[in-house]
Design a protein around this nucleic acid. Structure first.
Lengths: 207, 207
DNA sequence: TGCTTTTCTGAACACCGTTCATTTTATTTG
DNA sequence: CAAATAAAATGAACGGTGTTCAGAAAAGCA
């Protein structure tokens, strides 16, 4: 029967509609202020229908989180491919990561700050594969840097966590409004400078 | 009239009761799951009464945020006073900051991650003084390090933002469950190693 | 066409933050 | 002390939330 195939397609299509509506509402008015009823209204279905396609609101967040990772991964890959020198690759990787965070604040939040998507994973007893893949990419680049003599003989994973923490820290301090203490016009510059400075210091730590 | 003095004391006392109840509920079951009605129940008043002492829920969060900063500032001061060498002070400052974050995850969240307290400030058109004071402390220590020849001739503020971002990144990646990708037994060690490694790299960046 | 299965709805539930008329309590005045 | 006034506390109500589920509507099959 081609019917069940079509039904399957329709189910996927409906999930798409829900996610598209959810994403657009989230980006427009934030997560907190977006309700299931809002999403239902946009796709012109009743609120109850949403629950035939997603277990709960967290599962919608989680699905968007997965989507967003594929975009970030592309950006990161672009960052790597644009350079040949290992250390330049690391610099570019970080820049692309930060660029993604600043250009997609709500999505970055979903991927690396909100606890809701992690709760979905935990109750499914699954692993955070998307995060792991992104981190593996970083480790890969760090590994090449080490082969080129950078980072003396530190542990790859230690260096990678350090780099990740730094860029994540820069991103979240800003996205969660803690750069309020700096003049508005200088905030971005200060964060960029801090990143450049960090890279500069890293560069000098060679064998 | 001694009456209005007493009334004033009673008002302060009531605010204390509310904040104590709120803090204990928050630490116990998180912010999201604590309602005004919950708080009211603990102090054995009706929910409406809370609003005679605090404008809204955000203002309660903000008050706790202020409280928490005074504890963090003490911890940071202790970190500085425990050492005499400028660079050792910086190391200790960071350690105490991280210790506070890991020992008081909910409060750290309130101080540096949640947007609610910042919104209270923004609609009051005030400055985030508490954050500023903490950052000034860091800048002070960095300044002493620079006088001792560290950080070549980088900008104090740039270095300070970098250090803050790194420790904040370490803290939030963990508190918001993004260290799930590492084996549970090694998470803390990895974060500590990353901090030590960062310090080690910083140390070598001298004039 | 009638029967079954799938899909969808919308009312209901138990919450939430917040407001406000009303009642209770405390203070001041005659 | 009693009456009048002022302050504090209540609890119902409002409009919202996520979520569930009996019953209605639509689709697929005989």
């Amino acid at each position: 029967m081609g019917v069940i195939d079509r039904k399957e397609r329709e189910k996927v299509e409906m999930k798409r509609q829900i996610l598209d509506a959810a994403r657009s509402l989230f980006l427009e008015q934030g997560f907190e202020k977006t309700s299931i009823r809002n999403i239902a209204e946009v796709i012109e279905y009743s609120a109850g229908t949403i629950y035939l396609y997603f277990k709960d609101k967290n599962e919608i967040l989680f699905a968007l989180h997965v989507e967003s990772f594929s975009v970030l991964m592309q950006a990161m890959q672009a960052g790597i491919m644009g350079e040949t020198d290992p250390f330049e690759r690391l610099i570019s990787l970080g820049k692309h990561y930060l660029k993604y965070a600043f250009e997609n604040p709500e999505l970055y939040d979903l991927m690396f700050v909100m606890t809701a998507p992690m709760e979905t994973l935990e109750c499914r007893e699954e692993i955070w594969c998307d995060g792991e893949r992104a981190f593996e990419t970083l480790k890969f680049v760090v590994s090449d840097c080490m082969k080129a003599g950078y980072f003396k003989d530190a542990e790859n994973e230690t260096i990678s966590v350090m780099v990740w923490s730094l860029v994540h820290g820069l991103a979240t301090l800003h996205l969660r409004r803690r750069t309020m203490i700096f003049p508005e016009t200088k905030r971005i510059k200060l964060l960029e400078d801090a990143y450049v400075q960090f890279i500069e210091i890293l560069k000098t730590y060679k064998k």
